[in-house]
Simulated assay, not measured.
Amino acid sequence: MTLNTLQDVYKDQLQDLYSACKQSLDATTELGRAAEDKELSEALIAGANGISAGIDELKSLCAKHDIDPDGEHCKGMEGLAREARSHGIEQSFSDNDARDAMIITQYQRMVHYALAGYGCLVAFANRLGLGEDAAVLQRMLDETYDGDRRMTHIATEGGINKEAA
Rank of each mutant, 00 (worst) to 15 (best):
F93S: 09
G88I: 04
A125Y: 04
R82E: 15
A81R: 05
D133P: 01
R127W: 14
T144L: 00
Y145N: 10
L80V: 13
R82W: 15
R127L: 11
E83F: 11
G131M: 03
D97W: 13
S92Q: 14
L121G: 08
A125D: 05
A125L: 04
L130A: 10
I89K: 03
D95W: 08
E83P: 09
G76D: 11
H87T: 10
D97S: 14
G129L: 03
V136H: 05
L128M: 01
S86C: 12
V122Q: 02
N126G: 08
E143P: 00
A101S: 15
V122F: 04
Y145F: 13
A134R: 02
G129V: 02
C120E: 11
N126K: 13
A101C: 10
M140G: 07
D133V: 03
G88N: 07
C74A: 06
I89V: 15
Q138R: 13
E83C: 02
T144C: 04
M140T: 12
R139Y: 12
M110H: 07
A135F: 05
I89C: 01
R85V: 11
V111G: 03
A125N: 07
A114E: 15
A135C: 01
R99Q: 15
L80K: 11
T144K: 01
A123W: 07
S92L: 13
E132Y: 03
V111Q: 11
V122H: 00
D95I: 04
